[in-house]
Every structure is written in structure tokens, then in C-alpha cells.
Design a protein around this nucleic acid. Structure first.
Lengths: 225, 225
DNA sequence: GCAAAAGTGTTAGTGATACACCCATGA
DNA sequence: TCATGGGTGTATCACTAACACTTTTGC
């Protein structure tokens, strides 16, 4: 083969379909949870799977992901990013479907009709190859938490340092020293103290917000602690 | 929307096609180069683009990428990994094509019929959205070089520390202190000295190889130097 | 007053940086 | 002998890790 291939032009190939699947994750009761729904049709009927489906002809992949997320968890503020594309023949036994998976991070596991929030560990049984997709999503989350400020996506706009620390501890499954965590995270200069406090059952905590809620790449974590 | 959608079953949606595009990168004359080919058909005819095309019904995405790479640069040993999926409507003016882009790293810019190796900077003019794809590929390469041992994919099996250092310097566009680079890279324990040397025009250099040529995540670089 | 989380500083150690000189070879 | 890249050690600095006690509140 020595020449460039033809690009697709007028004809269409009816054998490979394109879908998106959205992996909505949120922290709940000290553990990472994922939102799943029951499959309605086909051989996987009534099994659990991530929300998703066909991409429309005139929508982008990102738009399709947002549409499926909003259809499942309406009105939720979420950070959505493309995760990976899964396209093994046979991953959907009924037909050839290439699925572009998206990761959606939410500050709360909001209840919604027909939606189940399940803990990610131990890994739940899911339809199709969605367990693999979940695994990929968790890997991505852990990796990005360690070198970006992505934690804002798993928190409300304002939060205490204790809550922020819990995000890291929960997702990464490790315990962090409170004093060193505060020093490091404040030294990054990404947080703004709000001047207000939140009263719980105990001593009230200072509230903070992220100065920017867009992805920034910085080392947020120690190598080990 | 409160319930799970139907998965695709018997019918097919002829409106969205799936392709792969492969971004082959190699170092050449002190700069990152990419392999491109000329588009043969359609409105982009004779413009430069990355090799790629439709995914066959019974092949995986990875297999499709390997097929297109091998069709363009036969017999090359390459590291191939999925990069990102591009699916804006209108990215191919002729029809709706969702393209799964792949990154291919090669130890040499091997010449091949119909293939042009072009420097990545300044960014070349390319058909479709391939300039965006190239940009994404370079970002990925730089990021992974900094926190993995991926450099092996851009080198022959055996190499000198000087050559290894050049990979980092070329890709990341910075100068590294030789002594510190050697200390750091050897301290990682990923390299095996071969005991042999390579004679160039000057003092012969010790040859090394990577103990493992699979992706490993380690900090390979200083923050800045 | 007691339980529970918030808040705070110092020290020791490790790892990163900066830096200069000699060596081996081919031309 | 000269030009070119290969090879080596040390001192300083910055950052990280380890660590314990006091404060504030609700009950």
C-alpha cells in the first residue's frame, strides 16, 4: 500500500453504528458511586448499564453526551469529558456499535427516576462492556485528581478544606495528613477563602471556593503519604 | 427522561460512519515529524492528511489503526495507542464521519512510497480537522513523555544516554543538564547497560536498553530546568 | 465537660539544581 | 592537536514528611 485511501464520500456504511455512553460519578457516603439505568430492550434487557445511545446525525459527540446525561440526571451541574472509545466487535451482541464513552463528574449523587447510584467498589455487574468502561473512568478520575484541580467537579461551589481533603482520600483510597494537605493545597493558590464559615455539629470551618473551575494542571498530591 | 434507552438492535443508522486516523510521529533531524499522505478523492483531494479510513465490520478499532499504519509504513515497529475521537458534524464536508484518532510512535522516520514526513512545527496545513488532531497528538506525546517511560517508542532497541536525552529535549523543546539527566534516569532503574559501546566520530558511548518496553508511569523529568 | 472536627509550626530528611573538569575518539 | 560528545561528584536549596497540642462548637 503506497497511496492515500479514499475518504468516505457519498455512500454510507450501514454496518458500524456510533453511540455515546456516559459514566456519571459522584461521591456518596464516603465512596465513589456511579449512576446506572436499566436496559429496556435487547438481550441485555433489565440489566444495569450507563446511560447512552445513538449519536444523532447533526450533533457533536460532546452534545450527544450532554443530551444523555441531562436526560438521565436533569439539571445537574457536571463536568463532562471524553474518556475513551470502545469498539470491539461483539461488545454489543446485537450489532456493531462503537461507543464513545464520556466521564461526567457531579458534586452530588442526585436521585432521579429510574436511576440507581451504585458503589464503584466492588465493581458492580453491568451490561455490555460497561464494567470495563467504569474501570477506565475510575482510572482517569484518579489520575487527573492527582495532577489537576479537577476536584472542584466533585464539590459544591463552596466547601471546607476538610471536604476537599475527603475528596482526595475517598477517590484515591489513602489517608492524608491534615496539616500537610492544607499547606500544599493553599500554597497552590487555587483556592479563595470566602470569609464565611459553615457550622456543623462542631467547630465551624472556613469555606473556600476554587478561583477557577476550569482544568488546570498542577501537582496536588505528595508522592505517597 | 427517566428510563433507559433502547440499545441498537437490528436496524442500522446509515448516517454516521466510523473511521480511524493514525498520526505516525518520529524524530528526524532534531525535530518531531509526522507522516502524511495525499488525499485521493473528494473535496480534499490532493491535500495532505493522516493515513486512515473506514473501520471494517469485523475488526476492532485497534486493528483498524494497525491496518492503516501498516498499509502506509509497512513493517515498522511502532507503539500505537488510541488518542481521541473527533466527531464534529462537518469535520468531513462530504459526510458525517466520526474518527477515532490513534497515535503511532516510531523509532525512525522511514521513507515509504507516497508518504511525506513533515515537521510538526510550525504546524503544517492538513485536510479536514487533521491539524487539530496533530495538535492533540503532540500534547499527548509531551504529557506522556514527562510521566512515563514512553521514550522507548521513539528509539531503537539500544541507544546511548545522549540519544535518550535528545528525545526529551526535542519533544519538550528544552535543554537538560546532562549530569542531572543521567542521575535521574539511571536512578529510575528502567535502563539496562548493554556493556557494549557505539563508536561515533568521538568518544564511544555506553549502550542501554529499556528493561521493559511497556508503558510505566514514573516521573522522568524535573519540574523545570 | 465531653466529643468531634478545625486550626496551627517546626524539624529532619530527601531529592532537585547548579556547576567544571577530564576522557576517549576520529579527523 | 583539536573538536566533539561522553563521563563523573559535590554543595546548596527547596520541598516533603512526620509529628502533637489547642480551639471552637453542639450536645
Amino acid at each position: 500500500m503506497t497511496t492515500a485511501p479514499a475518504r468516505p464520500t457519498a455512500y454510507a456504511d450501514a454496518t458500524v453504528a456510533v453511540a455515546v455512553d456516559v459514566v456519571p460519578l459522584a461521591l456518596h457516603e464516603g465512596a465513589v458511586h456511579a449512576a446506572v439505568v436499566r436496559v429496556e430492550h435487547g438481550v441485555a434487557r433489565s440489566r444495569l448499564a450507563f446511560p447512552g445511545g445513538r449519536v444523532r446525525e447533526n450533533e457533536s459527540l460532546d452534545d450527544a453526551a450532554s443530551r444523555w446525561l441531562d436526560g438521565t440526571l436533569p439539571g445537574s451541574r457536571a463536568h463532562v469529558e471524553q474518556l475513551y472509545t470502545f469498539g470491539e466487535p461483539g461488545r454489543d451482541p446485537a450489532s456493531r456499535v462503537v461507543s464513545v464513552a464520556y466521564l461526567a463528574l457531579l458534586p452530588r449523587a442526585l436521585p432521579s427516576d429510574g436511576v440507581l447510584w451504585v458503589p464503584c467498589e466492588p465493581a458492580p455487574r453491568l451490561a455490555y462492556d460497561h464494567r470495563t468502561i467504569l474501570h477506565t473512568a475510575l482510572e482517569r478520575l484518579r489520575a487527573k485528581l492527582a495532577y489537576t484541580n479537577l476536584a472542584w467537579a466533585l464539590l459544591d461551589e463552596s466547601f471546607t478544606l476538610g471536604e476537599l481533603q475527603q475528596v482526595y482520600e475517598t477517590v484515591l483510597g489513602l489517608a492524608l495528613d491534615r496539616r500537610n494537605f492544607r499547606k500544599r493545597i493553599l500554597a497552590l493558590g487555587l483556592l479563595k477563602p470566602l470569609g464565611t464559615t459553615r457550622g456543623g455539629a462542631h467547630r465551624p470551618a472556613q469555606l473556600y471556593r476554587f478561583a477557577t473551575r476550569r482544568p488546570i494542571t498542577v501537582g496536588v498530591l505528595p508522592d505517597r503519604e
